[in-house]
């Protein structure tokens, strides 16, 4: 039985998690020393994180590797016991792992999770139907919907180990959502997938969120996932929440200003273009440059007045660039990810 949605789907207060990590020097002597004197130290993976999520909200949870994203998700799904602070998800304390709580949540991590490797995915779905006590009519209806939206036709009776990565991910998602959870924790749900498959996973999550008003927390290194699905962003770095706001506000964190893109009718030299802003680039009749956020209107007006411009657009910097700046160039891998920027056309 599913209880009515609470006013706050997820409530996190001063959540903390510490681990004891053992250390050993490499080589034979290191092993001998470690045998007699094992060194260890405490690592604070999450250092007092607080936030609330409303029912139906989709939130991008971003941060560099090792920032504490996955640890936080694992605490919210009841896998890890917090060292301190409190969390309530769908009205329950996750660490207690009560049955009504487990029936309302799901956590998707990677592509090898729920499915039984040597049997067809359909067998895993039947197991989940029994474990979650899903009525037959609901199971059939959900399976029909998922088969259509995710394109599962033809792959459900194949052994899981013979499925492609994308096919397996789609089956994992279906298995994880078969019981229609109200809170979804998605940890890198599109990692390793090709662009088309990433798009179909995004479309599926978007559709699920809208149909079931599910709360979704999403971590991804693909910024396109985040920009396509989430309006609100939480950024965690070194175990602490460093940003909580919408995408546009996140873009404003960048000190690099906005990016102006031009389509010209007449060619122009790089030196001439550089008079209007920084980091100018020209490729034939296409040009772009950065301008300070406070001077966007004035610079755009000057460009339109001085140059023969066919089209002009102003964009926020790509989210991955903002992230790279937030976390420091050496630590951030977000720049590796592909598409995604918040664009606002003024032309």
């Amino acid at each position: 039985m599913i209880s009515p949605p609470p006013d706050v789907a997820v409530q996190v207060r001063d959540l903390r998690k510490s681990y004891t990590v053992h250390e050993k020097d490499p080589g034979l002597m290191g092993s001998v020393r470690s045998f007699f004197n094992r060194r260890s130290h405490e690592v604070e993976a999450v250092k007092g994180v607080s936030f609330d999520l409303a029912p139906g909200e989709v939130v991008g949870f971003l941060g560099p590797n090792g920032a504490g994203k996955t640890t936080t998700l694992k605490m919210l799904s009841g896998l890890l016991h917090p060292t301190g602070g409190t969390a309530r998800v769908a009205g329950f304390e996750p660490r207690k792992r009560e049955t009504p709580f487990l029936k309302q949540i799901t956590l998707v991590m990677g592509q090898k999770q729920q499915l039984i490797w040597d049997l067809p995915a359909l067998d895993s779905f039947l197991v989940n139907q029994a474990i979650y006590e899903i009525p037959e009519a609901q199971y059939q209806a959900t399976m029909r919907e998922f088969t259509e939206v995710l394109g599962l036709e033809g792959i459900l009776k194949k052994q899981v180990r013979k499925l492609s990565l994308g096919e397996r991910m789609k089956c994992e998602l279906a298995a994880a959502l078969l019981h229609r959870p109200r809170v979804l924790f998605l940890d890198e749900p599109t990692i390793g997938l090709d662009v088309n498959m990433q798009e179909s996973v995004r479309a599926f999550v978007r559709d699920y969120n809208q149909r079931f008003e599910a709360t979704v927390i999403l971590t991804s290194h693909y910024m396109a996932d985040v920009t396509a699905l989430a309006r609100r962003i939480l950024v965690i770095d070194a175990g602490q929440l460093v940003f909580d706001g919408d995408l546009a506000s996140l873009a404003e964190q960048s000190s690099g200003g906005k990016r102006v893109r031009l389509q010209l009718r007449q060619p122009i030299s790089l030196a001439d273009l550089s008079r209007y802003g920084n980091d100018a680039r020209i490729d034939g009749l296409s040009a772009e440059l950065s301008v300070p956020r406070s001077e966007v209107s004035a610079r755009a007006a000057r460009l339109l007045a001085d140059l023969d411009v066919a089209d002009l657009t102003v964009e926020d910097p790509p989210i991955e660039a903002v992230m790279a700046e937030l976390f420091g160039a050496g630590r951030e891998k977000a720049a590796e990810s592909v598409t995604g920027s918040v664009a606002a056309s003024v032309a």
Binding site: K74, G78, L79, L102, T106, M109, N128
Partner: peptide, 9 residues
Amino acid sequence: LSPKLLRPL
């Protein structure tokens, strides 16, 4: 063990 712990059984 994690995915098994997420299920109500």
